[in-house]
Design a protein around this nucleic acid. Structure first.
Lengths: 346, 346
DNA sequence: TCGTTTTTCTAGAACGATTTAGAAGATCGA
DNA sequence: TCGATCTTCTAAATCGTTCTAGAAAAACGA
């Protein structure tokens, strides 16, 4: 087998030292244009595709990629346009810094494999997207000395975060619902216990997802008189929302409002209503969270959060050395559309 | 600053050679359990998080990650559940082989930055997802000697492909439409010229997307008497389909059928019809391609392709040394639902 | 008991680049 | 013309592993 073409090979062929070849690629102003051109030409001739990524990473201590950690399977992670928007914003900044994204699903059920992946990944920094506190993968990152930025506030193991004020955002929604006279609310959450099975009702005070419990707290804060039930149909996805809402609608005891903790779930709930000939906003109120593009089309009342900006901000905290902030709170806005209306009097 | 903890540090502290520490992590059966335990304990004590990824990658020649190349921005790439499904299948196999996914958007407009990213990426193999022939990034991969598997047939630079028979799949759809009496069809495609602008009509014989032109050929094959127009509203996305279909529906010359070359675009077209009080399958036929989950909900007639399997197959071709096949053709199936019906007689 | 095999561990050379410090030659100001 | 400064290039060390070959010790078979 032909020996691999390396910097050295090229250097010999071009009659210069390896350092010079390296400079030809990385520091063009450190050598004469003539020599640089000659080097690049011989490189081309020999079929040399440029410095090896691993070697460069080792020597320079920079892998040139940021890890993206998220719970849940990949398939579900990206079924939510919210996640995709985040990734898009992050990718935008990554591209600016000539950095690529290394996807690392760290399941919350099979902790082992994800954690191992994190241990072995060649990354400089990591974005932590909706991974709950206490996941061992976070500890690994800490141990490896990898700077991290989380999408959740006060993630103790993270070096920074970019988030919204979940409590206030949900409180605004609660106030809206309260004004409309709603006193009986079902909250739709994602929950891994419900995955692959029937929808389940969860104990109000024992929600395992950090953001979810904050949002529920927010709702309760401005709806002190209301009765709350928490239901999950599985993953954070349209189908789960559809399943959970169907179950709720077919039960004896319908609420006057269904508050999805994400738009995708809320849209599933709307679908469930339509299938039963019910009109959202008239027969029953449905609200979401995030304001993904489809929410507008569906007329969904929701809380807008600037998701792409969130991705961008995380990217900058991770990659821009000039960025001095460590904690960023992004604004949210209640968006009222047709899916919410006054609670029917009985 | 405290010097970094390395294999060597741990070796010294544990009173063994570096090789042994390495073996403790990588080849547990090469040393006694007692020593291994002692090593792991001291490692823990010193805060050593395991062998450095870059160094390992350099020495062993394995980066432990596969690159995923795709055209178009990340945000659009994942707005299509089809792409997400592919990625999910690929991720499944990647996980099996303890490999991570390195996302690499290679725009077809700004070729430069994407190609550079590919040049520098630490990857062992690459999956090429809907990247058109002739993109320079493919040449870079070839030069670097990186094995690639494409989602398109006969990608000359790729070492393998996993695809469907685009021609036959589209021909089946064409036959269906033909039987229903359709002779005037508008085809919805994605096209970068239309991005950010108004929908445009494209010349039938000059479609730049490989798969698109194959699918159009397939339709024409079984609809020799039909008149075809090709329209694009931009990226492959719901919004583009909505925009393009709206434009078509508001024009003087409505077709009897709109054939989206992807489900997301077709769903956009259905939305456009609904907004105008038209019923899909009765007033106008709409068909898609892919059979994403939402297609069933919407009653969209489409061609099913096993997208997750495609991702899995690509993953196996890339990662499983036991896999001897280089080219895999997956089956497709015409799925007739309510969005297609007989062409109205005039 | 003695050679042979197996187990357990180690020394030292890679892997392919970047970096640091500095040499040689060119350019410059006075 | 001479020392100082710049430009252009190089030698050698280094990054943190894994790998190859082999040594030392233990176990084994007869």
């Amino acid at each position: 087998m032909a020996p691999r073409v390396t910097l050295k090979t090229v250097a010999q062929a071009a009659g210069v030292s390896p350092s010079t070849v390296s400079n030809a690629y990385n520091k063009p102003d450190q050598l004469s244009a003539a020599v640089r051109e000659r080097i690049l030409a011989t490189a081309q001739e020999l079929g040399y595709a440029g410095p090896d990524a691993s070697a460069r990473a080792l020597r320079s201590g920079k892998a040139g990629s940021v890890g993206v950690l998220f719970t849940s399977q990949l398939s579900y992670a990206f079924s939510d346009p919210y996640a995709v928007g985040f990734l898009a914003g992050l990718a935008e900044i990554a591209e600016e810094f000539a950095t690529s994204l290394l996807l690392m699903p760290v399941s919350s059920t099979d902790v082992r494999s994800g954690t191992n992946a994190v241990r072995q990944a060649a990354i400089d920094t990591a974005a932590i997207f909706c991974v709950d506190r206490g996941h061992p993968a976070l500890e690994v990152l800490k141990n490896r000395g990898i700077p991290t930025v989380s999408t959740q506030r006060g993630h103790d193991l993270a070096d920074g975060w970019v988030a919204i004020n979940e409590l206030d955002a949900a409180a605004a929604m609660g106030e809206h619902l309260s004004r409309l006279g709603h006193r009986d609310v079902v909250v739709l959450v994602d929950n891994h216990e419900a995955i692959g099975g029937r929808p389940i009702e969860l104990d109000l005070d024992r929600i395992d997802c950090d953001d979810c419990s904050l949002r529920i707290q927010g709702l309760r804060k401005t709806m002190p008189d209301a009765q709350f039930r928490v239901v999950s149909g599985g993953h954070n996805a349209f189908d789960s929302g559809l399943a959970a809402a169907s179950w709720v609608l077919d039960s004896q005891d319908r609420p006057t409002a269904i508050a999805g903790l994400s738009d995708v779930q809320a849209l599933g709930a709307i679908e469930a209503m339509k299938a039963r000939g019910l009109v959202p906003g008239r027969d029953l109120t449905v609200t979401g969270f995030d304001d993904i593009p489809a929410a507008e089309v569906a007329g969904l009342t929701t809380v807008r959060q600037p998701i792409k900006d969130k991705g961008r901000a995380v990217g900058r905290l991770l990659l821009d050395p000039g960025e001095t902030q460590r904690h960023i709170t992004l604004p949210t806005e209640l968006v009222v559309r047709s899916s919410s209306g006054p609670a029917p009097r009985n």
